[in-house]
Amino acid sequence: MKIEGSFTLEAPIRTVWDYLLNIEEMSQCIPGVSALETIDTKSYRGELQIKVGPIKAAFGGTVTLLELEPPHRLVAEIVADDRRNASQVKATFTSILKSLADGTEVTYTIDANVRGRLAQFGQAVAQSTAKKMAAAFGSCMQEKIDAGETA
């Protein structure tokens, strides 16, 4: 299953990159993420709660940064499972940053393999949930960047 999308931030590419790579700060902008801890400079452990209608999922797992090409491209691997829904997710997350005249475009691609009960919800629900999360993430990041600039 492939999920794609993009959003734009009003900040230079270098600033956006630095904010994205500050994983602990950045993760506060992902709706539903909690208990993030750093394992080492490249891996992190955390929990993610997602609610779609009556269905609640709670994933726990790790994120590992695989490739970093500052300030343009990052690739991460996500491995997580939801015990209650007996589901596993393995995903590759790729993000590409592009300089625009008045900001930076952030494109993301998630190539996910979902197994277990949650798999039946498939592409449509995952894509729309990701889009909503990305929109919330984008505006939260913008706020952090704006606050950082004035501070």
């Binding site: 009556p54 269905i55 007996a86 009960r117």
Partner: peptide, 20 residues
């Protein structure tokens, strides 16, 4: 709590343990 009417949708979700 969940409402149960005809059960065609909710029983499937219970069986698959998508809701509890």
């Amino acid at each position: 709590a969940k409402v149960l009417a005809g059960g065609t949708a909710i029983v499937l979700m219970l069986q698959q343990k998508l809701i509890a």
